[in-house]
Nucleic acid binder design. Structure first.
Lengths: 104, 104
DNA sequence: ACTAAAGTTCGACATATTTCGAATTGTAGT
DNA sequence: ACTACAATTCGAAATATGTCGAACTTTAGT
């Protein structure tokens, strides 16, 4: 835990985003607002696992695996709600990633 | 017109950044400027391939492979200058990546 | 032309990733 | 209790990746 460097942690995030299916899932969760606007915490977009996979043409087990990877990387939160499991992205995660690339 | 979607293109960038060695290389270059210019007044930063690998403890062939991956993903530019090959990151690449995550 | 330095390419090998189907778990409604 | 639905776990197979050393290329200096 203490020997888990910042570089490794961030590389883990990028690895989670390096698969086109996972990036599509993440993009879907990310794009809760129109460009130029910001989601407030209340307006966080939540999809259940099944909805997220719509149109991706992958098996449920594969979808589950990918979401788990996104979750393990700290990019996506998951929480059971009844029969479904809800997924969402914390705005702070996006802030942190944007800040990594922001220059000057 | 191309069958190379935006998602796939961006996933390719994140894949290039998903390896800790490559992310370390990119991070080093991120603070650099275009060739022939200076990052800041204090330290002149000119990274040839060999310098980039300093402290990473990987074979030259592995280093070369990683830089090639970063270049293929469109993240790093490379240009021969005498015996060395100079590497740098275009600011627009950082802008594009930051914009992807920035929701404000 | 010869040599050394800086990188690249190639071939090989070990490890990791992606994906699926089958079986399983958890939840809600009948 | 039974059934249907949502999602996960497991095991296996094909493919991709990371790494190295050896051989090669390109350039600068002698």
């Amino acid at each position: 835990m203490s020997n888990f460097s910042t570089i490794d942690h961030r590389a883990g995030m990028f690895k989670a985003l390096s698969n086109p299916h996972r990036l599509a899932l993440f993009s879907r969760l990310m794009s809760c607002c129109a460009p130029g606007t910001r989601c407030n915490a209340e307006k966080e977009v939540r999809f259940c696992v099944g909805e997220l996979g719509d149109g991706l043409d992958i098996a449920p087990s594969t979808l589950s695996h990918h979401l788990k990877e996104l979750n393990r990387a700290g990019l996506v939160n998951m929480e059971r709600r009844g029969k479904n499991i809800e997924c969402w992205v914390e705005p702070s995660v996006l802030d942190s990633l944007a800040a990594f690339f922001r220059q000057i």
